[in-house]
Simulated scan of single mutants.
Amino acid sequence: MPPPQSWRRLQAEDENSDEDARSRQHQNRDDSDDEAEYESGDGMDVDGNPAQQADNQLAKKLVRYAISCEYSRTAIRRDGIKERVLGNHGRSFKRIFTLAQKQLRDVWGMEMRELPVREKMSLQEKRQAMKSNSQLKTGSGSYILASTLPEPYRSAAILKPSKTPSAEEEATYVAFYTMVVSLIWLNAGELSDQKLKRYLMRLNADQNVSNEKTEVTLKKMERHGYVVRKVERPPIGQDGEHTMTWHVGPRAKEEVGLDGVMGMVREVYGERNPDLEKKLRSSLGLRGRAAAGAGEDAGGAGESSRMGGGDEEGD
Rank of each mutant, 00 (worst) to 15 (best):
283 S>R: 14
77 R>F: 01
253 K>S: 10
272 R>K: 14
314 G>I: 14
152 P>Y: 14
9 R>T: 09
221 M>D: 06
240 G>M: 03
108 W>S: 02
4 P>W: 01
245 T>N: 13
306 R>L: 05
168 E>M: 07
99 L>D: 00
33 D>K: 14
62 L>C: 06
1 M>V: 04
61 K>A: 06
300 G>F: 02
202 R>W: 11
79 D>C: 12
241 E>H: 08
233 R>M: 10
201 M>N: 13
9 R>N: 08
95 R>S: 13
104 L>Q: 02
221 M>P: 07
249 G>R: 05
190 E>P: 03
187 N>C: 11
63 V>F: 03
132 S>N: 10
201 M>E: 14
196 L>R: 11
177 Y>K: 04
158 I>V: 15
225 G>S: 09
69 C>F: 02
54 A>P: 00
29 R>C: 02
125 E>A: 15
297 D>V: 13
29 R>A: 11
170 E>C: 09
245 T>G: 01
185 W>G: 07
284 L>H: 07
224 H>S: 10
220 K>F: 04
2 P>H: 09
109 G>L: 07
37 E>H: 03
92 S>Y: 08
145 L>T: 07
265 V>P: 02
242 H>G: 12
57 Q>S: 05
295 G>W: 10
277 E>F: 05
168 E>K: 13
238 Q>A: 01
309 G>H: 10
214 T>A: 13
170 E>S: 13
298 A>I: 05
219 K>Y: 03
68 S>I: 09
196 L>C: 11
271 E>A: 14
114 E>L: 08
124 Q>A: 15
170 E>I: 04
312 E>T: 11
55 D>R: 09
58 L>D: 00
196 L>F: 13
67 I>D: 01
291 A>K: 13
142 S>I: 03
217 T>A: 06
21 A>P: 00
283 S>K: 14
98 T>V: 06
99 L>V: 03
171 A>R: 14
297 D>S: 10
286 L>A: 08
205 A>W: 08
196 L>H: 10
101 Q>P: 05
200 L>Q: 11
84 R>N: 12
104 L>P: 03
166 S>Q: 02
203 L>S: 08
84 R>D: 08
192 S>I: 04
308 G>T: 12
158 I>E: 04
209 V>N: 03
12 A>F: 05
197 K>G: 00
15 E>Y: 07
177 Y>Q: 06
108 W>F: 13
185 W>T: 13
199 Y>P: 04
37 E>R: 15
203 L>Q: 12
232 E>C: 12
167 A>F: 06
252 A>D: 08
223 R>V: 12
299 G>P: 00
246 W>I: 07
99 L>P: 00
69 C>Y: 06
22 R>T: 11
266 R>Y: 02
194 Q>C: 04
217 T>F: 00
236 I>W: 00
157 A>P: 00
61 K>F: 05
74 T>D: 14
22 R>D: 13
184 I>G: 07
240 G>E: 03
6 S>K: 15
242 H>K: 15
228 V>M: 05
223 R>H: 15
